[in-house]
Every structure is written in structure tokens, then in C-alpha cells.
Design a protein around this nucleic acid. Structure first.
Length: 245
DNA sequence: GGCTTATGCGCAG
DNA sequence: TGCGCCTAAGCCA
């Protein structure tokens, strides 16, 4: 580990040359343990990225916040919202306020359902609330609601347990697939537009999706124009034809 | 080169 | 509810 700069420089002297002993993710929060118990908390936010490559690593250029070096490869962190050295108590405080994470072995869909079913907030809000469930972002929110035919404005209270169980299982599969492939694909093979002679949509989010960022384009399933609206300061996308549940 | 946009989220008011 | 953080890519001129 080397090279924190700017407002992330505080931890540099304590960490430079230390060995990474553990790396863990809870939702969108990353925890890197160095040595016995020095934990660096990283949150990528909107812009953060890790750029990986084979050694030798290039000379640090621009605002490089953190560099990991292994035997053969390096990873450079740029643009994170958070990159800070935390105490155990601070790490615990962050994790205590995070809901279950579908990518973790301890994922507990029933705990998520308890919160959803008590709330009159729309599902679009609840799925983005990291206290309710962690790790689901704007893409998975839009795509999950589509795949389960749910109007994003549906109240949490109106969601039945059976539907949630199917959604939770679906999330686990979709998110694990996303980790494996490094991109988000949510379109079932039978709905794939390439099979129907329409051009596939692929952008730097990588994958094939039903509604995310497809406003004004025809739904892959019913042809209705995909709609968009600003919901709690984030872009929400849905198909009014397919999502009436 | 400038402008717009974006997978998130904490904070002020 | 709106702003600020902070970076890269895509688009336009």
C-alpha cells in the first residue's frame, strides 16, 4: 500500500508499507484491514474506481488516492467519496446502520421484509435505502422492479411475502452474476432484443437491461415507451405497461 | 476545449 | 429538497 494524497493523506504515514491482511465488502462500503487492526474504509461513491494492472505499476499521476501492490499486480484507487483510516468502533458504527447485503453469506431476506412491510414508503425508495437493504443501487432497483412487474410507487406495506421472497432470490442471483462478469445483465434470454432483430443496448455499465437509462425507448417485452422521473433526487426508470403490480 | 451526465450519499436548512 | 463532493466519458463545436 502506498501513495495517499490530498485530503486522504492523514493515514499515509501509518499505512505506507503495511500488508493487506483482509478485504471485505458490506453493501457499497469496502473495508481493508492492514496488519492486525488498521482498517481503511473506502466508499467509491459516484466516481470512484479501482484501476488494475500488471506490475510494474506506472508512476503515480494525478490524484491517486491509494495504491495496492501484490506480487504480480497493482490496483489504483481514484475518485472515492471516502478513503479513511477508522477505528474498530467506527467500522462497527457504519456496519450497524447497514441493512442485509444480498452478496453476503449472512443475507437475511426476512429481516429486509420486516422493514419493507412496515413502511408505507414506495418500493423505489425502500430498495435504495441502505438501512433497509444494502448494496442495491439505481440499476438493480429499476431492473428488479421491472422483473417482478411492480410499479415503483407500490407501497412497502402492499408487497406480499411471496413476491418479496422471489425478489430477494432474484437479487442474489443477479448481483452475484454482476460480480462475476463485472457488468449488470438483467434481460432474460427470451426477451433479448438481439433475438428480435433490435440492436442491443450496451454502455459502460456494460450490460443488457430492461429499463435503466432506456427512457423513451420501447420496452423489450411490450413495446411501451420506458418512462423516467426524478425520485428522491435519483433517476428512476420503469415501463408503465409491464409494471402495474 | 467546454458542457453534460453518471452505478452514491452526507449534510444543511 | 438541493447542494457538494470528485472523476471520466461522451458529445458538441
Amino acid at each position: 500500500m502506498s501513495s495517499p494524497q490530498g485530503r486522504f493523506a492523514d493515514a499515509a504515514a501509518l499505512l505506507d508499507g503495511q500488508v493487506l491482511t483482509r478485504a471485505e465488502a458490506h453493501g457499497k462500503h469496502l473495508f481493508h484491514t492492514f496488519g492486525r487492526d488498521r482498517v481503511v474504509h473506502v466508499h467509491l461513491g459516484l466516481y470512484g474506481t479501482f484501476d488494475e494492472g500488471e506490475l510494474p505499476a506506472p508512476e503515480p499521476r494525478g490524484l491517486l488516492r491509494l495504491r495496492f501492490e501484490g506480487e504480480t499486480h497493482y490496483a489504483d484507487l481514484r475518485g472515492p467519496t471516502a478513503c479513511e483510516l477508522l477505528t474498530r468502533a467506527e467500522v462497527a458504527a457504519i456496519r450497524d446502520r447497514l441493512g442485509p447485503d444480498p452478496l453476503r453469506r449472512d443475507f437475511d431476506p426476512d429481516r429486509v421484509y420486516q422493514r419493507i412491510s412496515r413502511s408505507s414508503s414506495p418500493l423505489a425508495t425502500l430498495l435504495m435505502d441502505q438501512k433497509v437493504i444494502s448494496g442495491v443501487g439505481n440499476v438493480y432497483r429499476a431492473e428488479l422492479l421491472f422483473r417482478h412487474h411492480l410499479d415503483p410507487q407500490t407501497s412497502g406495506k402492499a408487497l406480499d411475502k411471496g413476491t418479496w421472497d422471489a425478489m430477494a432470490a432474484d437479487l442474489v442471483v443477479l448481483m452475484k452474476d454482476g460480480v462475476r462478469k463485472g457488468r449488470i445483465d438483467t434481460v432474460r434470454p427470451e426477451d433479448d432484443p438481439r433475438r428480435k432483430g433490435r440492436p442491443a443496448r450496451r454502455d459502460r455499465h456494460g450490460g443488457e437491461v430492461y429499463v435503466y437509462r432506456r427512457a423513451g425507448m420501447p420496452c423489450h417485452v411490450c413495446g411501451t415507451e420506458v418512462r423516467t422521473a426524478t425520485h428522491a433526487a435519483r433517476n428512476l426508470f420503469w415501463c408503465p405497461g409491464c409494471q402495474q403490480g
